[in-house]
Structure formats: structure tokens, C-alpha cells
Amino acid sequence: MTLSLFLVQTLNGLQFGILLFFIAAGLTLVFGVMDFINLAHGVQYMIGAYLAAMFTALTGNFFFGLMLALPSALLFGLLLEFLIFRHLYARDHLDQVLATFGIIIFLNQAVKVVWGAAPLSVPVPEILSGTVVLMDGLLYPAYRLALIGSGLAIALILYILVSYTRIGMLVRAGATNAPMVSALGVDISRLFMVVFGFGAMLAGFAGAMVAPILSVEPGMGDNLLILTFVVIVIGGIGSIRGAFIAALLVGLVDTLGRIFGPFLLRLIMDPSAASQTGRALAPMLIYILMAAVLFFRPAGLFPVRK
């Protein structure tokens, strides 16, 4: 019983970690390559979820919805880049924080105006609606397994893209030393646009994928954004590999901590105190983790820029 609970929770943690990775991947590149703090990355995730909800409702099919949501999220990201972000690259971090904070305020309200304040729900697609028997007495929803699977696949694709393609090489070089890359004659603004659009699409994809299992509502990106920052800072800003490992770490620590923290505490204190302390500590765990990582490695686990 406890073993299967543990396995289920581990899978939940993985799934959460993968979700974080989708968002973190774009953010860490935008951050690493352009040195740009984009608080609005979380609302791009929200927009992805809303677009998926809308297109799914329109087409009556989640996969069509997804297919339409992705390019729309990409376009939306590029639009934001064109209208606002590209004017901020040369500014300092504070200006970026202020402007992207304004975008959050605007978009959180805008989705209310367009889609209503009530949460939307998206049905889980028919073929993935069942559960899978992983082992004796261990059932897991098929959709969540699919989410984990697609996450691993995308992580792999990303890894190959970044490691073996020309644009990936530029991205890596850009994260290490952007002025150098531009001095070598690379069109840095095009590179920025590509990276940005790609990041926006990944965040949108994350939003679309969770639409069937979470409620789609205004502000849904806000807290996730902060978790994503935790991820990229732990991983080392600009490092895809770091983002991947840190995302899984944060996902697992957060999920397992909430469930098993009180259990473990029960070993050293009485049950009611344990469950109370456990509940108090669990949400703080990842922040403690982050502070600890930065204490020992002030530039994250996989520092890119030395």
C-alpha cells in the first residue's frame, strides 16, 4: 500500500516536474541568452491553456485544439516580442520587471474579459481517459502517463536541438557570451526572436497539456511562474540540462514533501503536531532547497556563464 502510494506520488512528482520543465526551458533560454527577466512567461502558459480550451471547444477534439493552440501561442509570443519585449532587451532588469509585471496585470484581466472569470474545464480526450495498470494494485491515469511521456520526448528533442543544430550552437554560445556572438556577425535580434518564440510556444504547450487536468483560470500562471524561477535558478540560468534536472527535483521534492513530510515527522513528534508542521513545511521545502543550493553554489547547479 505505501509502496504503491509512493510510486503514484513519484509519478505525480515527475509529471509536475515535467510541466515545470516545459515552462522553465523557455524561460532559462530567454534569461540566459538575452539576459532578460520575463515575468510574463507565466501568463504565456495561461494563454496556452485558454487557447487549448477554446480550440478544443470549437473543434470538439482535444488534439485538434492542441494543434491549433500551439501555433497560436507561438504567434502570440512573437507578437508580444515584436510589440514590447524587443524594446526592453537593452534595458536593465528593473525596467524589464516593471514592464512584464504590467503585462501580467493586463493579460490576467484580459482573459477574464474574453473568456469570463469562471474557470474553464477541458475534458480529457477519449482515448486517454482511462487508467493504466502499472502493476498489481497500481492504477495511473493514462492521460498523465501521456503527459510524462510527451515531456520526456520533448526534453530529448530539445537536447538534440540545442546540442547538435546550428541554431542550438548559437543559443549555447549566446548563453555563455552574447556580446561575442553578436560580434561574430550573427543576427542576434533574429536569434532572440527565435528563442523567444520557441520559449513562448513551450510555455503555451505546457498550458495546453494541463488544461484537461487543471482548471483553466485567470492568474493560473502566477504561482507557477515563481516555481519556474526557482527551477531555473537552481539549475543555473541558461542551462537546459540544469533546468531539466532542477525541474524534476523541484517537482519531486514538492509533491513527495507534501505527502510524506508529515509521515516522516511523525517519527519524531506526535501525530497531530506532525501533520500540522508537515503541512506548514511542505510548501516551503522547495524554497529552502533553493536557498540551500544558492548558499553552496551561488550560481546554481550548472552555471553557464562564468
Binding site: 534569461f31 527577466i37 532588469h93 515563481i226 524561477f229 526557482v230 535558478v233 540560468i237 500540522q276 503541512r279 506548514a280 513545511l281 510548501p283 516551503m284 524554497y287 529552502i288 533553493m290 536557498a291 544558492l294 548558499f295 551561488p298 550560481a299 546554481g300
Partner: peptide, 29 residues
Amino acid sequence: ISLRTKGVYFIMITLAFGQMAFFFAISLS
């Protein structure tokens, strides 16, 4: 602890401490 880090990392670690305080307050049932 925070001042050991620089720049963006400082921003993020102060954020982390802020969040800890936030969740601690929530836990004050």
C-alpha cells in the same frame, strides 16, 4: 545568505525567502 549572491540570483533568493514567509503565515492555523 542572500548577499552572498549577485544580480539575478539575489532577486531570486530574496523571492524565495519571501515565499517561505508567505507559506509560513499560511501555516499559522
